[in-house]
């Protein structure tokens, strides 16, 4: 069984936010009105954490892309009362929208605040409706959703590989954010495969994971010289 993981090279990342836009389009994430967004109901599966250090004029800005970390030891799946979120054999933490009862316990339990909630029936402007991705189902009001590592792409990739009777090659399966990144800062692949680029990068001295002390073992690895 492969174990899918993501490496984000923060030294390459320019903080442009292309991954956020690509994610939003790929996964049919609802567009929230500005008023709603201001009260904290904005919906991003791939979020961008922006922190400012120092005082004007010597400001250091950090921009860190933050998807769901698909922890190997996820705190969210343990508290779900109805099997709506679970970790599968390939290490993907799935969210099943049609089973979710909307108790938001998983959002509370997630130390990375990776999940978002459909406070209202999701809506799109008319221009967006024609370019919704048919591969991803639309969510409904009152359920929790989150980054799926574009699991719908994995289904297709697996099927193609099975048709041709071969293994999935490194880099064949990549989420939309990784594909769209203009500086190729996002790598994706099987971290159990010692040949894969993700594995090699994860062994780099620059690599770190968010809040390793919690024991959640996130599968999103950051590379950074700073810190």
């Amino acid at each position: 069984m492969p174990k899918w993981a993501m490496v984000i090279d923060l030294d390459k990342c320019t903080g442009c936010g292309d991954c956020m836009a690509a994610c939003k389009l790929e996964n049919n994430i609802a567009i929230v009105s500005p008023e709603e967004a201001n009260v904290g109901r904005v919906m991003f599966w791939m979020d961008m954490i922006t922190t400012y250090e120092g005082e004007y004029p010597n400001i250091k800005v950090k921009r860190i892309p933050k998807p769901c970390f698909h922890c190997d030891n996820p705190p969210c799946t343990r508290v779900c009362p109805v099997y709506a979120t679970y970790k599968n054999d390939e290490g993907l933490v799935g969210q099943i929208y049609h089973r979710c009862i909307g108790c938001r316990y998983c959002m509370v339990a997630c130390p990375y605040t990776a999940k978002v909630f459909n406070w209202y029936e999701p809506k799109w402007p008319d221009e967006f409706k024609s370019c919704l991705n048919p591969d991803v189902s639309l969510r409904m009001v009152g359920v929790v959703e989150k980054c799926s590592f574009c699991a719908h792409r994995l289904i297709k990739v697996k099927e193609n590989a099975d048709m041709e009777e071969r293994e999935i090659y490194d880099g064949e399966y990549s989420p939309a954010c990784g594909e769209s990144c203009p500086t190729n800062a996002i790598y994706f692949g099987d971290i159990d495969n010692k040949e894969s680029q993700v594995y090699k990068l994860s062994q780099s001295s620059r690599s770190y994971r968010e809040m390793e002390n919690l024991g959640t073992e996130p599968k999103v690895i950051y590379l950074s010289k700073r810190e």
């Binding site: 679970y86 599968n88 054999d89 993907l92 799935g94 099943i96 049609h98 591969d135 991803v136 189902s137 799926s148 699991a151 719908h152 994995l154 289904i155």
Partner: peptide
């Protein structure tokens, strides 16, 4: 029977 193999 993995949910993610059919549901998306």
């Amino acid at each position: 029977k993995d949910c993610l193999s059919c549901h998306m």
